[in-house]
């Protein structure tokens, strides 16, 4: 199992990214404090992008996906497992690390719960939206850049509402949370289904 562990890439990339912000903005403490939430969200985005690439790649290239298909193993199980494991290793640890980093970046203590809940709804969305795009680019030769160009536009709404929701938590309106929850509940129904279709098509 020592060889197989790529799962720590995303979290370690997140940690490395987090290091850059205090180093580059450290001289102006006021600025760092203001941008703390945004910089955490940016790092979450990067960590997700870097882990999306390997989501289906190995299975597709080694022919295991084809073997699953021929053996009539339902793709719904595969997609659900991939989604859960992807979120467990990229989203879940980051949700718990982020409040600590908010303090490191001298962000406001009041934002801790707001950030926690916005990431709780935001990170599954990153995994959900990234999955069909990762499946779509499976056959492409320039896969890495293509994956990033295609997925960033779809990640933008999540970033926008994610960052805004932290502010609205303190004012007690929660409107952006409702919006994130709405997107999440639609995505969790539709996007895995689309991913299954794309995966089946990719084998043809």
């Amino acid at each position: 199992m020592l060889y197989s562990n790529k799962s720590w890439f995303a979290v370690s990339f997140f940690l490395l990214c987090m290091l850059i912000f205090p180093l580059s903005l450290g001289s102006s403490e006021g600025l760092l404090k203001k941008t703390a939430v945004s910089s955490i969200w940016i790092c979450v985005l990067f960590a997700n992008l870097i882990s999306l690439e390997s989501l289906f790649k190995d299975d597709y290239q080694s022919g295991i996906l084809l073997q699953y298909k021929i053996n009539k193993i339902p793709f719904s199980i595969i997609v659900a497992t991939k989604l859960i494991s992807h979120w467990t290793f990229t989203g879940f640890p980051i949700i718990f690390l982020s409040p600590i980093f908010l303090v490191f970046l001298s962000g406001s203590f009041n934002d801790i719960f707001g950030l926690f809940f916005s990431l709780l709804f935001g990170t599954p969305l990153f995994s959900l939206i990234g999955m069909p795009i990762a499946a779509l680019t499976l056959g492409a030769s320039t896969r890495g850049p293509l994956l990033i160009f295609l997925s960033i536009p779809f990640f933008l709404p999540i970033i926008i509402f994610g960052v805004l929701s932290v502010g609205s938590f303190n004012s007690g309106t929660y409107s952006e949370y409702y919006l994130l929850c709405a997107i999440l509940s639609i995505s969790i129904v539709i996007l895995p289904y689309i991913t299954i279709k794309i995966l089946q098509e990719s084998l043809k």
Binding site: M1, S62, G63, L66, Q67, I70, N71, K72
Partner: peptide
Amino acid sequence: IDNLGYVGHKNALFENETIFD
């Protein structure tokens, strides 16, 4: 017969697993 056996060009192995896995 609900399952067909298939061995293709690609060996469909998880490269980083052991034979035991």
